[in-house]
Amino acid sequence: MKKAQPPSGIDPIIIKDHHEIDYLHSYAQDSPFFAGLSQGRLLGTECKGCGIRYATPRRHCMECGKETAWFDLPLAGRVHTWTTCYLEEPFHLVLVEFRGVDTLFLSRLVGAGEGEVKVGMRVRAQFLKKPKFRATDVYFVPEG
């Protein structure tokens, strides 16, 4: 009797599989920063040991390992670098530098047209009226 042959040469069978997870994402040691945003404050951290000031907070100093202290960043800074993203609606991302602060802060820049963003441009922080406790609760606008 002739044996049944396994099927060969057929197209691969592709199914769709859904995967969804809700993460309980704790900001943990960074939580004061996000609480600050809801009060219109931009909080960085500074090391009392070696004097480094971090615009994006780090709870422990990268140089000496000591625990850092919170401080209020100035709300005005300058664009260190930028890009305009063309996903759906174009939007600008900027790394902001602050006078007297050693590191930078990543944010969105609102209120500037395409081709209007420049390195060195003065920008000022604005806050969402209804905070969502996300890094997007703060954004920057051109100064003046």
Partner: peptide
């Protein structure tokens, strides 16, 4: 960084683009 960078609509091309812009400057 999923606290500070990812939520900004971050995608890698944008990060490299910011490096490129600073390099141009």
């Amino acid at each position: 960084d999923t606290n500070f960078d990812y939520p900004l609509g971050g995608f890698y091309t944008a990060y490299y683009a910011m490096m490129a812009v600073r390099r141009m400057h």
